[in-house]
């Protein structure tokens, strides 16, 4: 009888411990990722970056520099959405892709308001004086915009990712926009 009780208890403990957690790993940006209407999800950044990288590489604009690879500097990004955004969720993906393509490298010692992404590299650069008058061939700037509408219980959010690549003359030599629209319904009961 005692053995039977112990077995049942162990089985119950095993079952309970197995059911206790619903956390699991999923592939980032896959169809198993959580989707919300009023927020930019990680898959939205991924999809926007994918579209921008494809567009920028296909344009061939990065090859129009006298001494490839092109040097890129990151300029201002305006966030006109309702949430706080770390622009590197989009920009870093673009930088990595361009770097791996061999078409462009990013200057990490030059930023808005004399702020360097890598201060130590800036000191090294000052010591070595390697720039030789070529700070950047292009600057990358952009804007994130959110448009939200409601109709009955249906909510819709559109996130626009707008990017511009300007050359040393101040001309936007490449521009593109990716819009991501999501719809969902509010529960009829609840807050």
């Amino acid at each position: 009888m005692n053995k039977y009780l112990v077995c049942v208890s162990l089985l119950a403990v095993a079952l309970l411990s197995g059911c206790g957690s619903s956390a699991k790993y999923v592939e980032t940006g896959s169809r198993r990722s959580v989707v919300t209407v009023g927020q930019i999800n990680i898959q939205d950044y991924n999809q926007a970056a994918e579209a921008m990288i494809n567009s920028l590489l296909a344009s061939g604009v990065l090859d129009r520099v006298p001494d490839p690879p092109a040097i890129l500097a990151i300029s201002r990004f305006v966030n006109n959405t309702s949430e706080q955004i770390d622009i590197d969720l989009l920009v870093k993906k673009i930088r990595v892709a361009l770097n791996k393509s061999g078409k462009a490298v990013t200057r990490t010692t030059w930023g808005l308001g004399d702020t360097a992404e890598d201060p130590l590299a800036k000191e090294l650069e000052a010591t070595a004086a390697t720039t030789a008058g070529r700070m950047a061939d292009f600057t990358l700037s952009g804007k994130f915009i959110e448009t939200t509408v409601h109709a009955g219980r249906t909510r819709q959010s559109t996130f626009s990712f707008q990017l511009s690549l300007s050359d040393a003359r101040g001309l936007a030599v490449w521009e593109d926009e990716k819009e991501i629209t999501k719809q969902g319904t509010r529960p009829s009961i609840g807050f």
Binding site: G29, N46, Q47, A49, E50, I53, N54, K93, V96, A97
Partner: peptide
């Protein structure tokens, strides 16, 4: 070849609609 551009993309089609899916190689 690993690249941030290689990600899952969600897209939609209306009934009877055709669409072009375009991909650009990340390196030469």
């Amino acid at each position: 070849v690993s690249t941030p551009a290689s990600t899952w993309v969600t897209t939609q089609l209306e009934g009877g609609e055709s669409k072009f899916l375009t991909g650009v190689a990340p390196t030469p």
